[in-house]
Amino acid sequence: MARFNETNLATAHEIIARYPRPKSALIPLLHLAQEQDGYVTDEAMRQIADLVGVTPAEVIGTGSFYEMFRFEPTGRYLINICGTMSCALLGASDLLHAAERTLGIHAGGTTADGMFTLHQAECQAACTEAPCLQVNYRYRFRMTPDGVEQLIDDLRAGRLDDEIPPHGTLARVRQHIPADRGVGAVDPDAVDGPPAWIPVTVEGAGS
């Protein structure tokens, strides 16, 4: 399942068509690939390179700049436990140990059943709620070791399915831009009128 499935390939073409230059679709397509497989596979990067007309090296170069793209098999739930100052002072290492114990893996690892990937993360900008963690980028504030165990248990049992979709999911309902509001494959230099999303009735626009 490394390449885009049929539905996603159609979506990929739709995304590409939204931009004046195919290359601009690179990051949205990386998200799409991650949504499909939980991480960005080598095959997907090759396909994206083909689709937007760049080399695979450019795709990995761009993608690897961003922390939220993962390039190795990643669990259905990515647990990031903050390890920076406020959280560290308030017991973050206990959280990490609890998670490691419960999951039977070390930080950086993925459980054999592919359910969990555990990470120690830098400050998640929720220092007032320390210690905190994120599951697929959804916060859990003022956590305790028991809370961590409970969370993992709930995730395993599917009790949080409604709240936390699998890793890589950007949105459960994908937005589609109506054709008349998309700029489309228009060369920006060739546009002489006002941008498509500014109604021409606005005073001064287009002058």
Partner: peptide, 27 residues
């Protein structure tokens, strides 16, 4: 590679302290 040769087969990957010049795996 990109601008003169037109073969962008090497690129910076990662960022910050980990930034490095790299090819695509196996390419």
């Amino acid at each position: 590679a990109d601008e003169v040769a037109g073969d962008a087969l090497i690129h910076f990957v990662e960022r910050g302290n980990a930034t490095q010049v790299m090819t695509y795996p196996d390419e």
